[in-house]
Design a protein around this nucleic acid. Sequence first.
DNA 1: CGATATTAATTCGAAAAGCGAAATATATTT
DNA 2: AAATATATTTCGCTTTTCGAATTAATATCG
Lengths: 162, 162
Amino acid sequence: MTSDIASLTLRALRRVLRATEIGSRQLAVATGLTTSQWLVLREIEARAKTTPGVVAQALQFSQATITTIVDRLVALDLVQRQRNANDKRQFLLTATQAGRNVVINAPDLLHLTFTGRFVKLPSWEQAMILAAVERLALLMDAQDIDAAPLLDSAAIDQSQPK
Amino acid sequence: MTSDIASLTLRALRRVLRATEIGSRQLAVATGLTTSQWLVLREIEARAKTTPGVVAQALQFSQATITTIVDRLVALDLVQRQRNANDKRQFLLTATQAGRNVVINAPDLLHLTFTGRFVKLPSWEQAMILAAVERLALLMDAQDIDAAPLLDSAAIDQSQPK
DNA sequence: CGATATTAATTCGAAAAGCGAAATATATTT
DNA sequence: AAATATATTTCGCTTTTCGAATTAATATCG
């Protein structure tokens, strides 16, 4: 029996993923950034304060790649680099106000095209879908051990200089 | 009220997307292809027989880009190019057996990490999640008007030469 | 303490991605 | 048949991406 519930769910989930995969590329075009630049900026903005290494790991890019992308984001004045005073090997990355604005004002394609249809569903179904997707998110979150959790200041040396 | 059900669902959905976004990059590495090559190959394999133009549209790449990526996939003997006899402007793209094998044998990260947890859920919950995700897929599918449906032979001229 | 490893990030060189514009060849329209 | 439209490739160029080597700072251990 190849079509058990898990397989069917995966198949449906893949359809969802495929539909959004394309939206993310359109989004990058809309913001005037490349897909990678957009991903990196989003990551930095979400983490508030992080380092190239953490971003590289979370996004599965090489450190060298992050360096060049951040170079551009800095040139565009969307991101700021500053040395970590406590561990001078590290650079701390933060989004500038402009960078935050790009992320915040990015046309939310998912939102635009999705919400309209979603709200037309009967509320019991909305509730059911919410419950299901939250369950899914839990299943998936636990999975990515490498992709450090959002807002992890763990990797940043916060100790006070003596 | 900013936290209506739609917003909550979107937020959870984004967590799911983020988790898989990263997985897809690992996958490309695992198959020895670049991410783009993997996407294109997957697209060709899924559609069984298609054209550069259709792939470009579905993936939101320029035609020129598809040409170069297909060049590589052909060189790797994963994809075949052949002129369409009915419309000689078109090239028909098909995955070779080797290409199909790459797609089929690709470690299914989603599957591996997901199924294990999923099957541990009580079956009523599995059923609920399946129903919800299928509903979601419907909502999203209808959205991407550009991304032609899978297995579309519509764009391929099938008429018999006279 | 001082030598040695480890860690964080950058620079460099090269392959590949990605695209717009021009070119080529085939189809369709008038 | 000429003009127009379509499908794809070729060309030139910029950007992405990464591995390897490099630089600098921190950690370890004898």
